[in-house]
Design a protein around this nucleic acid. Structure first.
Length: 429
RNA sequence: GGAGACGUGGCCGAGAGGCUGAAGGCGCUCCCCUGCUAAGGGAGUAUGGGGUUUGUAGCUCCAUCGAGGGUUCGAAUCCCUCCGUCUCCGCCA
């Protein structure tokens, strides 16, 4: 959520910047509602003040043994008036809140202006795509040929876009998770955390998945359908949700910053609206593994930290010697809550293309405001923190990248050096 | 899953319809006293929002005693629902 003060005082400028990401803000409507809000709120509060003072007077009169009937007569219709004023105020307020909750974050000035992924700017490349003197297979053909990947079985026990993996491939995925977690904890200074895979609505609101993106989430109905669903839980679409929500409602001591956390979790996405894209293989699944990095930092440092965090994700690709490039997402392509995002795209020989494998974002105080995640420095007022996160990395896609980049003519796969200790020393699968 | 107890500020803990945004204690901050240490005295110490102000400060109003509803002129206090914690029993990895 954006700062309401900013929305009140610099609405035009905000609308102007939001335009760069293709978002049209109805300035006039907001101004109207704000004026209405102000009026209603003052009305309501004045009535409340009157009620409070009269009620107090009744108490005092009673204590002195005086007749309270005159005061009671005076406030006879106050209750009804107050209720009406309250209802009016709440109506405007919730209308405004709904609008504010749907406004995306303002892009940082270093974000290139553009309308689609075509306009993303390549920052750097690392590594060279390997050359093969045989016809390369994609990860599906390769893994199916070895009996490692069984799409039919997944469809049978669940549905399409789920995976069944066996033997060395399943183990390779586990090895990747271990490598990533060990690297982030041992050399990048993150604390490993274990978190719930089901979360409540407050958590999803805190990180911005709700109210706008409910359709992308799997919901677990806890009660009968006719029951209220406030307490329904959702499968996490990313570890970002439970991990970032650890600081929801907290006032941290400045010395506790930065908070650096990493977690491996499965992620669940219903991917409504993406049918027809990446239907084959592991690229786009309803369930996939991811190692996530989350940082909660002092506002002054967040852009510096974004560079570091991106570097931490890159370090994994470098360890695995997978060629990749770093993209600065343009205003039209960054996510709802992000002020700036770098995507890491890994080279996939099977597709002859770079594909997203990590997304590293600075949310500034956009998430923190809704989370009410703050810190206090000295005597000062609590101040909102900045939050960041990045995949480090999407494990399923890393698995794809390894199979495809390390494939051999005979259908075997060489194990990257960095993974061998996690694979019992095996060099070739 | 069953039965009971409970949920108050940074922490402990009183309060049982009005003078309570909340006694007292601990902690913390500042000031005074003190040769050092120890001790003592005083003051302060929640969060969000609105109005006023170009903005800050200030002033002022509103809200918040697990959450949400209700009763009442008035609720931390009474009633209901939910969430959570503890104890005992049951079950389970």
């Amino acid at each position: 959520m954006l700062d309401t003060k900013l929305l009140r005082t610099q609405l035009e400028a905000v609308a102007e910047r939001l335009k760069t990401r293709g978002f049209e803000l109805d300035v006039e409507q907001i101004q109207q509602l704000e004026a209405e809000r102000k009026k209603r709120q003052v009305e309501m509060q004045e009535l409340q003040a009157l009620r409070n003072s009269r009620s107090k007077a009744i108490g005092q009169a009673k204590a002195k043994g005086e007749d309270i009937q005159p005061i009671l007569d005076e406030v006879a219709d106050l209750k009804e008036k107050l209720e009406a004023a309250k209802a009016a105020e709440e109506a405007v307020q919730s209308e405004l809140e709904a609008i504010y909750a749907s406004i995306p974050n303002l892009p940082h000035e270093s974000v290139p202006v553009g309308s689609s992924e075509e306009d993303n700017v390549e920052i750097r490349r690392w590594g060279t795509p390997p050359e093969f003197d045989f016809e390369v297979k994609d990860h599906v053909d390769l893994a199916e040929a070895r009996g490692w990947y069984d799409n039919e079985a997944a469809v049978k026990i669940a549905s399409s876009r789920f995976a069944v993996m066996k033997g060395p491939m399943a183990r390779l995925q586990r090895a990747l998770i271990q490598l990533m977690l060990d690297t982030h904890t041992q050399t990048h200074g993150y604390e490993e955390v274990y978190v719930p895979y089901l979360v409540n609505q407050d958590s999803l609101r805190g990180t911005g998945q709700l109210p706008k993106f409910e359709a992308d989430l799997y919901k677990i109905a806890k009660h009968e359908e006719h029951d209220t669903n406030d307490r329904d839980l959702y499968l996490i679409p990313t570890a970002e949700v439970p991990v970032t929500n650890l600081v929801r409602g907290e006032i941290l001591d400045e010395s506790a910053l930065p908070l650096k956390m990493t977690a491996h979790t499965p992620c669940f996405r219903s991917e409504a609206g993406s049918y027809g894209r990446d239907t084959k293989g592991l690229i786009r699944q309803h369930q996939f593994e991811k190692v996530e990095m989350v940082q909660v930092v002092h506002p002054d440092t967040s852009y510096e930290v974004l560079e570091q965090l991106t570097g931490h994700a890159e370090a994994i690709l470098q360890k695995l010697e997978l060629p990749y490039r770093v993209m600065n997402l343009c205003t039209g392509d960054i996510g709802f809550s992000a002020a700036k995002t770098y995507d890491l795209e890994v080279w996939l020989p099977g597709q002859n293309a770079y594909r997203e494998i990590s997304s590293c974002s600075n949310f500034e105080d956009f998430q923190a405001r809704r989370l009410q995640a703050r810190f206090r420095s000295g005597e000062g007022k609590p101040q909102l923190v900045h939050t960041l996160n990045g995949s480090g990395l999407a494990v399923g896609r890393t698995l794809v990248a390894i199979l495809e980049n390390y494939q051999n003519a005979d259908g075997t796969v060489t194990v990257p050096e960095a993974l061998r200790s996690y694979m019992g020393g095996v060099e070739v699968l």
